[in-house]
Amino acid sequence: MKSIKNHFSLVIALVSILFSIQVFTIVDRSIVAYKDKLASNYSVVVVAQFKIENEKMKSLNSLIADVIELSPDSVIKRLNTKMDKKNIELLKVTLPKFYKLKLTHFPSPNEIDNLTKGLLQNASITKVENFAHNHDTTYKFLLLFKDVISVFSITVFIVTILLILKELRIWQFMHNERMSIMGLFGAPIWLRSAVLFRLSIVDAIIASILTFILFSYLSSSQWILEQFNNIGIEVVVFDNIIDFSILFGVAISLSILLASLIVIGHKEEV
């Protein structure tokens, strides 16, 4: 019973670490997906005196993915004048050219600033509308969200590591006597610590399986999927192969580290 309780403590500590890692991964994926979504909706409007070829516009900054020339028709329509066709054509020629720039990704405020400055260096470009205020707010909100989740994950990680260190002392006490007795009968170090490594690897496997079950359930949960649908993004909550491999690797590494620390810290009884 005592042994099960000790196993349980390490398994719970490992599950907490794996849980925080996976939550951080999901949040990171959500932010990337949301940034992609924002990037596809976000554009910069450029006003130029003369026509600029698409390729030339793209060459002005590597951030520019696509250039769409806006038709002056809508502007003229808004004027709602009773001009004749000839004058309208003349007006079309004299009106400045409007371009909508699609970007490769959702830019940081710095990138936006550099893009604006770079475009304005072109003699033909008279105005660049980057909707900086809206963009800035959204971007800062995303960063804040990521920071909050990072702090949360790091806190869980630190608390769990402290729990594991406490667990380590209990294990050290538990295994020290057996290791010493085995040493008195000439057992080599690998044999003395074999039980310890076997137990910690078993705990790592149990913790990985529990985390796998938890996230497999969450990834198929309608409620979770609905939350992502509501903000218009698609996120892989748990990749059965890649995510499980990472979590399993972390659990095994931590357990082996824990067992190794006990073996290193073992002092022979005399």
Binding site: G183, L184, F185, G186, A187, P188
Partner: peptide, 13 residues
Amino acid sequence: RSKLNFLRRHIGI
């Protein structure tokens, strides 16, 4: 250490 382990394997305590 290895020689001591070897010796202890031939001792009963």
